[in-house]
Nucleic acid binder design. Structure first.
Length: 480
RNA sequence: GGUCUCGUAGUAUAACGGUUAGUACAUCGGGUUUUCAUCCCGACAACGCGGGUUCGACUCCCGCCGAGAUCACCA
């Protein structure tokens, strides 16, 4: 059996947003699953839309997600170069084959004239096909003149691995431009040549190319090439409306999610399962599991709506999974850059302790910034927050003061400052004061953190330490 | 307009032609000594419409409706 070769072929026109990332994931999974080759090819033939640095952004995104490529920029490969802009001679050589076989012609018709033809057809309400307007005596092809394919109207049948059996009549076949007047090839021509030269066996791309497929089939035929397997990937839809997700809908780049503290594991998991599933009820997949279970025939053939809420849920699942299965160190490594600024003054051990008691509350790693500040700095004393608390507002000031005093006395008398001893002390306080947990615990919790929420009290106290805890309780007691 | 594709709860999806149409997210309710979250339990909620074929249709066929894609010297 022929070795499977897939490719991801983006255009460096800016960041790749998450809607496009999936077109990198599926080829990757298919290649890895079959011990095949994944190629990264940069389709930069449109010099007008080229954006400086976009290639690096693409590489960055793939690296982050762990989608390593076997051939392409940086790593090289037998079909170098992997930038289309550097492959002009190759396209021209293939173009000459078509000219020689009479399947391509130079087209000197000015664009305005073509517009006129098009308008004419629109007015007559007939389909515009350029092959009906071929120039009479095309000149010899030379730089500065576009080269067109000479199409032959006929019927095509093919199989799309996702969409199934396909068929199209002659009315969609036309004389598409192969080489633009600037000498660069169009996508339509370049990708055919490259895929052939690079031995690509599976062409995976968005469904928007489905309509042009017959023209590609004509090209394969004219160039005497075997057809690769064609795989149309349905669109990812924007959160609202029915349009495909795009930058205009505020589609973020994958790296923006990275900067918010979304784990690559979660991103890969979510995107891979958007429009694909293996038929089981599994939701969380590692990369290896995705590679093992992936199959083309279970790709959905309708568009799937992008749902950030589910992505964030999945990210929370991954955060917990990494902590539970690999331990605090594994998760801690990923949190660099997500801590509050004041955390810089504390050592790793302390931050790991904080992480161990807060991790199950995180949806994204950047939540650390807002959720843990009171572990690194004295919170601003906010008596209103204390007194307006729904449990505490029933208590008088003297009661609050009394409770604070008893709490401080109890904690001061503790010989051991660990979670179990602290829990014991808290339980004793409940009995001695005959208060409800909601009252006593809310008081202590708020006095320590002045945060809307925090981890279990005994754990918070343990991590904060005896000195800090008592000092905070004392200053609140004084303020009441 | 021509051509093509798609159509199960709000969302993502599952279901040899025979199931009370399953699961997850979201939403709502409840439980785990405070809060927020995790975790657990529960509730709500779907086969676009109409014809066939069949003992029986979400599943096969046809029509309709709805949504999308494409008709560039962009990819």
């Amino acid at each position: 059996m022929k070795k499977i070769v897939t490719r991801f072929a983006p255009s460096p026109t800016g960041y790749i947003h998450i809607g496009n990332v999936r077109s990198a994931i599926y080829p990757y999974l298919l290649a890895r699953q079959n011990g095949g080759i994944m190629i990264l090819r940069i389709e930069d033939t449109d010099r007008g839309r080229y954006v400086e640095g976009a290639t690096e952004l693409i590489e960055d995104t793939l690296n982050w997600l762990g989608l390593e490529w076997d051939e392409g920029p940086i790593v090289g490969g037998p079909s170098e170069p992997y930038f289309q802009s550097e492959r002009k001679e190759i396209y021209h050589a293939w173009a000459k084959k078509l000219i020689e076989s009479g399947r391509a012609y130079a087209d000197p018709t000015p664009p305005e004239k073509i517009d006129e033809y098009r308008k004419e057809c629109n007015e007559k309400k007939i389909p515009f096909l350029y092959r009906n307007f071929r120039p009479e005596n095309p000149p010899e092809w030379k730089p500065g003149i576009p080269l067109r394919f000479k199409s032959e109207p006929k019927e095509y049948f093919w199989t799309d691995e996702v969409m199934g059996e396909m068929h199209a009549g002659p009315e969609v076949l036309d004389d598409i431009i192969l080489i633009k007047k600037d000498g660069y090839p169009t996508y339509n021509f370049a990708h055919i040549v490259d895929d052939a030269e690079m031995g690509v066996t599976h062409v995976m791309r968005g469904v928007e190319y489905l309509s042009s497929t017959p023209n590609y089939l004509a090209l394969y035929e004219a160039l005497n090439l075997d057809r690769p397997k064609l795989v149309s990937l349905p669109h990812i839809l924007a959160p609202t409306g029915n349009k495909k997700l795009g930058k205009r809908d505020g589609a973020k780049s994958a790296t923006e999610y990275r900067d918010d503290g979304v784990l690559p594991e979660a991103m890969l998991n979510y995107l891979a399962c958007l429009g694909w599933n293996d038929g089981t009820e599994q939701e969380i997949y590692t990369k290896d599991e995705l590679i093992k279970n992936f199959s083309l025939d279970r790709i959905q053939n309708s568009g799937a709506r992008y749902d950030e809420t589910k992505l964030l849920w999945m990210n929370g699942q991954w955060i917990r999974r990494i902590f539970d299965e690999q331990g605090v160190d594994a998760l801690y490594e990923k949190t660099s850059g997500f801590w509050p600024g004041t955390a810089a003054n504390f050592d790793d051990e302390y931050k790991k302790k904080v992480l161990s008691i807060i991790y199950d509350r995180l949806k994204v790693l950047s939540d650390l910034r807002s959720m843990t500040s009171y572990f690194f700095e004295v919170p601003r004393l906010d008596l209103d927050m204390l007194k307006n608390n729904k449990f505490l507002k029933k208590l008088s000031e003297s009661e609050l003061e009394d409770l604070m005093k008893k709490t401080i006395a109890k904690f001061s008398a503790l010989s051991e400052w660990d979670a179990d001893s602290l829990q014991g002390a808290l339980n004793e306080l409940l009995e001695e004061t005959s208060k409800k947990p909601a009252e006593l615990f809310s008081l202590i919790r708020i006095a320590l953190s002045f945060a809307p929420f925090s981890p279990a009290l005994n754990l918070t106290l343990e991590v904060l330490g005896r000195e800090v805890s008592l000092s905070r309780l004392n200053s609140v007691a004084r303020a009441i």
